[in-house]
């Protein structure tokens, strides 16, 4: 690999521009995606920029279980993103259609329609999980553009909230909630 290709690969990894698309989502994952750009998580440190136009984007972030109405829109927008590109499916819905499974209004999951590179599980996933998924997608995109490797979907690990001792997983002598039922 010569110098120019190495610089290009490095730049692609460092500058993922996102286009966010809702495929019939309940808006939970959409809120978390926006939260990953807020001061608390600050995805711009990785060069992430949320773009208004799919023409500018490198990574297509899709939420929702893919309703019949959304299928054509998703295919059109996937075609409008210029290569090299990657797709991140945010949340459990695009991966499995989640609690809406077998609904007659759905045409999911997402990888029946377009190739997906990274699945970020969670309902909704935490913003740090989304940032991790986007970083992974940028890496995959840079590698694939350089070496022409086939698409192989990656499922990111589940990132949960820190345990506060109130859940079932906590130790038996952890303090229980003091609130009484009225």
């Amino acid at each position: 690999m010569n110098l120019w290709n190495r610089l290009m690969c490095y730049s692609r990894r460092r500058s993922p521009w996102l286009f966010h698309m809702n495929g019939g989502s309940c808006n939970g994952c959409d809120i978390e995606l926006i939260a990953s750009l807020t001061p608390r998580y600050d995805a711009e440190q990785l060069g992430v920029r949320l773009e208004g136009s799919p023409r500018h984007a490198d990574i297509l972030c899709i939420t929702g279980p893919v309703t019949h109405n959304a299928v054509n829109a998703i295919k059109t927008v996937y075609g409008q993103v210029c290569g090299p590109k990657a797709v991140v499916a945010i949340g459990s819905c695009p991966a499995t259609t989640n609690v809406f499974i077998d609904s007659r209004t759905l045409d999911g999951p997402l990888n029946r329609h377009i190739p997906v590179d990274v699945f970020v599980p969670g309902c909704p996933p935490r913003p740090d999980a989304i940032i991790l998924g986007v970083a992974k997608a940028a890496e995959i995109l840079a590698e694939r553009a350089a070496k022409k490797i086939p698409i192989d979907p990656v499922v990111m690990p589940l990132v949960g909230p820190p345990c506060n001792g109130a859940c079932a997983c906590s130790t038996p002598n952890a303090p229980k909630s003091t609130e009484e039922q009225p």
Binding site: Y10, E44, Q45, C82
Partner: peptide, 21 residues
């Protein structure tokens, strides 16, 4: 109240855009 992009960010963006279709 964020940290913001790294110093070379506009340069990376420029190079990456040159390599897109």
């Amino acid at each position: 109240g964020r940290i913001g992009p790294p110093f070379m960010q506009p340069f990376y963006d420029f190079i990456k855009l040159l390599g897109k279709d």
